[in-house]
Design a protein around this nucleic acid. Structure first.
Length: 489
RNA sequence: CGGGGUGUAGCGCAGUUGGUAGCGCACCUGGUUUGGGACCAGGUGGUCGCCCGUUCGAGUCGGGUCACCCCGACCA
């Protein structure tokens, strides 16, 4: 396939063509927007369901808030509005009318809104405006809500799944009686994201806290999971924010505590988006196309019969029917593709492109010998197995594939994490990608200089790394800890 | 908003010194095929991004304009 050869020279192009050819999504005619196609959406739905269950286990409930936010809400929190103002779409009118030549429509100038409405870039403001009415007592807390929705950020440059003007996500918003509880919640949700990424997506992530300049607009702390793509660049895959009392104060959300004293509520918010699809694609794909983790693959097993004549296919139909039933009983999603308008070779290539984890092939030869050809997508290895006991073998194989692609991704990532003490050396090596653990003096100036000179940014101060004091790689000033630096999407 | 590039069939592209539009894929019809992206024959499909100009004649030359893509700044 021709797009594969371009991979090394142009990773972006390779990625884009893969997304389109694997039938996941395509660019819309609408500026910066994306059409998610049924196959891509099926993967997203599986992600949604899994995450939703994980949220509910922590006591979070789903709700829904309006798409449109009055302009004045956005300006209540100073840092928040500054962070988002540059990328907001604004609704100014509520009516169209036929134009003078009666061949089109124009905006009716008489229908100008008194106050403009913003299409939500995120919902902290409208949700906290609502929380004001819901929270009166410490007994109302904690309040744990999540919404699945679309948001719009008018991005300069867009890329399928990774950055689109409109995207799908979930945004969780919680209110708490104490600082400690809110901070714990922000970290708890980061753990949920990390677990989801590693156990379901098979994408290893570095957890950590953002530097001040990389923080969410209006947050006191932003926690992040950072994944490494196959070109060595970082992808921020999920964030969880400790918002302090900023929104509580901005929207006057006060409650009476046990001592009957008024206090402002403490807040968190946390979100993951369709960008996770990008992470999934870029972490596992190979030269034959997508590689999907069995836990999220819409089709986990595809069965393809061989035979030109209808009676040959009918014989396979009959033979596989009980196995298909057995697999379904086990909760495995299986597709039997006996369509006669595509040749087997085409189907092989197509399901590989779409990342289906396991393929079973049966022809007259197999029926005679009581065998079936099994191919696993992660290694592309084929073997002939006894037909008997196939369903339970497939189940084991799916588990094995899930583990294997995680291990493979983690091995790759770990091999591209470096400690670096010398800035000149860093400048040279960062060009080839990878994560660098370096000492940083904690100043925004140093951070800005690194970004300016190398296009790399401080992704986070990682958790779970043994930290020893040292000296800043750039300035030579004392440093308490190493930070994770990388070029990113 | 800066730098570079591209607009010709659904997609990818060719089109010579200006002479009235072509190739591959896809699609449709028929047949032969089917254990790694089939083959043969026939067929459908285009205001050459848009406007103005030069010319007997413009996909081609000149001017303008619009759109999109890539590299930067911004971001989940």
């Amino acid at each position: 396939m021709d797009f594969l050869t371009k991979r090394s020279e142009d990773y972006s192009k390779w990625y884009n063509e893969l997304v389109v050819k694997a039938d996941l999504a395509e660019q819309s005619d609408v500026r910066g927007c994306m059409v998610i196609k049924p196959y891509g959406y099926a993967i997203w739905e599986k992600m949604q369901r899994t995450l939703d269950d994980m949220f509910k286990e922590t006591g979070v409930q789903n709700a829904y808030f309006p798409l449109l936010i009055p302009k004045s809400f956005l300006s209540r929190e100073a840092e928040h509005v500054e962070g988002f103002a540059k990328e907001c779409a604004v609704v100014t009118h509520y009516r169209l009318k036929t134009n003078e030549t009666h061949d089109g429509v124009v905006v009716d100038p008489a229908a100008r809104l008194e106050e403009e409405l913003i299409i939500r870039p995120t919902s902290e403001t409208i949700i906290w405006n609502t929380f004001k009415n819901w929270i009166h007592s410490y007994r109302d807390l904690p309040l744990l809500v999540n919404q699945w929705c679309n948001v719009m950020r008018w991005e300069m440059r867009t890329r399928l799944f990774l950055r689109t003007s409109e995207f799908l996500w979930q945004e969780g918003h919680t209110a708490h009686a104490t600082r400690e509880e809110a901070e714990a919640r922000a970290q708890q949700m980061l753990k949920v994201y990390a677990k989801f990424a590693e156990e379901y997506m098979a994408v290893p992530v570095v957890q950590g806290v953002k530097s001040e300049t990389e923080r969410f607009a209006g947050a006191l702390d932003t926690y992040t999971i950072e994944a490494m793509m196959q070109d060595g660049k970082a992808l921020q895959s999920g964030t969880s924010h400790f918002l302090g009392q900023n929104f509580g104060k901005a929207f006057d959300v006060q409650f009476l505590n046990k001592e009957n004293k008024p206090e402002y509520a403490w807040a968190t918010s946390w979100g993951v988006s369709t960008r996770l699809m990008g992470a999934l694609i870029m972490t596992h794909s190979d030269d034959n196309g997508l590689v999907l983790p069995p836990a999220l693959a819409p089709i986990q097993v595809v069965i393809i019969p061989i035979g030109g004549k209808p009676e040959q296919v009918a014989a396979v139909d009959a033979a596989v029917a009980p196995v298909i039933e057995e697999l379904k009983q086990m909760g495995i999603s299986v597709k039997y593709d006996n369509a006669d308008n595509k040749r087997p070779g085409f189907k092989f290539a197509d399901y590989e492109l779409k990342g289906v984890p396991v393929r079973l092939v049966l022809g007259a030869r197999d029926l005679e010998n009581g065998t079936v050809e099994v191919m696993r997508r992660d290694t592309l290895e084929k073997e002939s197995r006894p037909f008997k006991g196939m369903a339970s073998y497939v189940k084991l194989l799916l588990d094995e594939i899930q583990k294997n692609i995680f291990t493979k991704a983690k091995t790759y990532r770990d091999a591209h994490i470096y400690e670096c003490e010398d800035y000149e050396e860093f400048k040279e090596r960062i060009k080839d990608g990878g994560f660098f653990l370096c000492h940083w003096d904690g100043s925004a100036e140093t951070e800005a200089r690194i970004k300016e000179e190398t296009q790399a940014t401080i992704r986070c101060v990682p958790f779970g790394v043994e930290q020893t004091p040292g000296v800043d790689m750039v300035t030579g000033k004392p440093s308490k800890a190493r930070v994770l630096i990388a070029r990113s999407y």
